[in-house]
């Protein structure tokens, strides 16, 4: 039983961390572009991002399943019922949230900051990097929120992963399965471990955030 929890926990963490990393790259990039770049359709894209934050995860799971299904447009990738497919689903779940928080964080910075950095001689890459440094605390919060949403999600990973023992079962799907079987003790154990994982990750990020704030003062 303990080995099984360990295995499921490791899979859960890996899937969600991988999804968060990918979603952070996309979300922070997209949020920054929406905040800084003069691109056509910016308002529409912002509306899509905001809508994306509220879309039920099970709907995202369904959409990903339709894409990855053998007859779907990405069926040839054979990602259905794999952890990679689950990562893809979680990326789609976490990205709008990270994008939205990034956009808000960038808009909270002084509006004159980009021009000020340009005037100080920053090229485009230096400007964006400095903006991220200035917004590092809310950006970290965005990543934390993305991870939290990914690891706690159950609907999409059930549809895309199929909750296959030893293969695609993660903590949340394991809990649902055990509750369905009436095995509340196991479900509670999984729940406690998942909670501990969430605490640990948040504690780690909070520590990084604190160090970031200290560095800000130096």
């Amino acid at each position: 039983m303990i080995e099984s929890v360990h295995e499921v926990l490791t899979r859960s963490a890996l899937v969600s961390v991988a999804a968060t990393l990918v979603a952070a790259v996309i979300g922070i990039g997209l949020g920054t572009a929406l905040a800084l770049a003069r691109i056509p359709g910016k308002q529409l894209m912002t509306a899509v991002v905001n809508t994306g934050m509220a879309v039920p995860t099970v709907v995202i799971g369904l959409a990903v399943a339709l894409l990855l299904w053998r007859s779907g447009p990405l069926g040839h990738l054979d990602l259905m019922y794999t952890v990679h497919g689950m990562v893809l689903a979680q990326v789609l779940i976490a990205t709008p949230l990270i994008t939205g928080i990034t956009l808000a964080a960038m808009r909270l910075l002084p509006s004159a900051l980009p021009d000020q950095l340009r005037a100080l001689g920053a090229n485009r890459a230096q400007l964006v990097l400095r903006m991220w440094i200035e917004a590092r605390i809310p950006l970290l919060a965005a990543a934390m929120a993305g991870f939290g949403k990914a690891i706690s999600e159950v609907g999409a990973v059930t549809i895309v992963g199929g909750n296959i023992h030893g293969h695609t079962q993660v903590m949340t799907t394991a809990i649902v399965e055990r509750v369905g079987r009436g095995d509340f003790n196991s479900a509670l154990l999984y729940g406690a471990v998942l909670l501990a994982l969430a605490f640990a990750v948040n504690g780690l990020l909070a520590s990084v955030r604190h160090r970031g704030a200290s560095w800000e003062r130096n």
Binding site: P110, A112, Q116, N218
Partner: peptide, 8 residues
């Protein structure tokens, strides 16, 4: 506005 960055 001096617009100093959040560092030293």
């Amino acid at each position: 506005q001096p617009g100093l960055l959040s560092t030293s």
